[in-house]
Design a protein around this nucleic acid. Structure first.
Length: 204
DNA sequence: GCTGAGATATTCT
DNA sequence: GAATATCTCAGCC
């Protein structure tokens, strides 16, 4: 297919995540008949700058694919019930990635609605775990390529995105000047979650 | 509209 | 044992 566009994407993904992340906004991620336009992402560096990254403490069985070559998917399971989808960036061994936080369903919306009965259209992929559900992504797709033949497919944007906003994550002192999170301004599908409330497990 | 708590796999201490 | 890159639901304003 679009070899030139794929090479361009591959070059983007091979670079630093903080440069790759905003360029993924407005691109499309497809699985089967379902496609989502990416509206919000978050960068995770494997270079030891981000203590919150899964890669910060080195490779494990779970995050092994994040240390693989760029242009592949890293799918992990968290909180016992949710999957999250990352695009691996930077050369193999670094462990960088871009977390897809939110998007807008642009194809296969009927399928996505079936997966999320009762959800409003703009909520179908508004949030990292909702996005993976709308796309029916699970660990079977961990490590699969997104720029080659396969179930998952990353496509370049077809229209210019509007204003891109970004913000540093508070509380990461060693990287306070790096904006980790990027989203498309005024897009209704951007996830509204802001606060990171540490949950007291009120378990007796 | 907002808030708080529960669910539960994998990993690290 | 405790924490985590979360979502959903019930209950209240």
């Amino acid at each position: 297919m679009s070899g030139i566009a794929d090479r361009k994407l591959a070059r983007i993904l091979a670079g630093p995540v903080v440069e790759a992340a905003p360029q993924l906004l407005g691109c499309f991620i497809s699985h089967g008949d379902t496609s989502i336009r990416i509206t919000e992402v978050e960068a995770y560096s494997g270079r030891g700058l981000d203590p919150a990254s899964h890669a910060h403490r080195g490779p494990t069985a779970r995050n092994a694919s994040q240390f693989g070559p760029p242009g592949h998917a890293y799918v992990y399971f968290t909180y016992g019930m949710h999957y999250c989808l990352n695009i691996v960036c930077e050369p193999a061994g670094i462990g960088g990635g871009v977390l897809l936080r939110a998007g807008e369903v642009v194809a296969g919306i009927d399928t996505a609605r079936d997966r999320r009965p009762g959800a409003r259209d703009r909520d179908l992929a508004r949030g990292p775990a909702r996005l993976t559900r709308a796309l029916d992504v699970d660990r079977r797709l961990d490590g699969s390529p997104v720029l080659a033949d396969g179930p998952l497919r990353l496509s370049p944007r077809t229209d210019p995105v509007g204003v891109i906003e970004s913000g540093p994550r508070t509380g990461v002192s060693s990287a306070a000047d790096i904006p980790w999170r990027f989203w498309i301004a005024d897009d209704p599908t951007v996830s509204p979650y802001r606060r990171h409330v540490p949950r007291n497990r009120t378990r007796k």
